[in-house]
């Protein structure tokens, strides 16, 4: 049949008493509660004084309420103030690092999703000798332990003179990840061949088919992948720590690393760490809230314009 269908609509089962739906909602609510409680705990901890957390461990409310952790994260408090609340003197140039994070995550997402989609198209929709072998080879990259890649990649970036540049930070993930290629290929496989055929009869070439059919039809998976790539890139820590020490390119996660323990056997500045984590997640939450409607629309649409 033709794959162009209308908006996803749920089938109706008006005649049946919806016990299943009630049970379903119960499970969903339970999952959401289990998901949210740790976040409440982060919030509660972030409004606490690190020095009081141990004594007030059982309180459901913040221990010794203070905004100190947030002041520390934003670099607003003096070293003395920070230390008095169990933090460290490290300050964070929040807006600069936020900008760096956005630049890095955005370029990684755009590059990686686009180039991986191109490759996925070739693996899913084109016929060429050695295709499956090359795809399997790509797939094996999934299994290459990161411990193999970190050191040589770091040396390479250094030899290219790209240390402390945006390019150096994004390059290893800019062109592909095996995950992205694999993910998109699986979805591209499912595209109805009739669409392609019709386009071809209209005289469309591969480039046009790719841009006008494959990409729009797979908007849902591509959006999903973009979201996941963005989050992964945003949270990446060790690589940017190695390559982007310099303030001018330092990303948020690296800057927030100072809230982890500073001495062997020392415990972290809990309040600062939690405040920093919430702060780092906030831009993404805002992004989703703003773009949410669009994302839903694109995910929920399986046809062609």
């Amino acid at each position: 049949m033709a794959a162009t269908t209308a908006l996803v609509g749920r089938p109706r089962h008006g005649r049946v008493i919806p016990w299943g739906r009630i049970a379903g909602w119960a499970v969903l609510v339970l999952v959401m509660a289990a998901t949210l409680f740790p976040f409440y705990w982060m919030l509660r901890t972030s409004f606490s004084n690190t020095r009081s957390l141990a004594a007030g461990a059982a309180d459901l409310l913040p221990a010794d309420f203070t905004l100190g952790a947030y002041r520390r994260v934003l670099g607003l408090s003096s070293t003395a103030e920070a230390v008095a609340e169990g933090g460290s003197g490290g300050s964070v140039n929040f807006w600069l690092f936020l900008r760096n994070s956005i630049v890095v995550a955005t370029s990684v997402t755009v590059g990686q999703v686009f180039f991986s989609a191109m490759a996925a198209y070739a693996f899913a929709r084109l016929r060429w000798p050695g295709r499956d072998a090359v795809f399997l080879l790509f797939l094996t990259a999934l299994m290459v332990p990161p411990i193999f890649t970190t050191l040589p990649n770091f040396v390479l970036i250094k030899e290219l003179g790209l240390l402390n540049t945006y390019l150096g930070i994004v390059l290893p993930h800019l062109l592909m990840t095996p995950f992205a290629v694999f993910f998109l290929r699986q979805f591209f496989l499912g595209v109805n061949a009739g669409l392609e055929e019709a386009a071809r009869i209209d005289g469309a070439g591969h480039v046009r088919i790719f841009f006008r059919i494959i990409l729009p039809v797979n908007r849902g998976p591509i959006t999903t992948l973009a979201i996941l790539t963005y989050i992964t890139s945003w949270n990446d820590y060790f690589w940017p720590l190695l390559v982007g020490k310099d303030e001018s390119v330092r990303v948020l996660t690296v800057a927030l690393g100072i809230f982890r323990s500073q001495t062997p056997q020392g415990s972290p500045d809990w309040a600062g760490l939690m405040a920093a984590t919430l702060f780092a997640a906030l831009p993404m939450i805002i992004l989703f809230a703003v773009l949410g409607r669009r994302i839903i629309d694109s995910i929920g649409y399986t046809g062609v314009k």
């Binding site: 490290g90 770091f154 250094k158 100072i258 982890r260 323990s261």
Partner: peptide
Amino acid sequence: ITQYGWDDYWNTLTTSFVSGT
């Protein structure tokens, strides 16, 4: 002066030895 948390310090140092940084 550059500061790293204890957990990152030695990794970063080792890597920097390898790469001459």
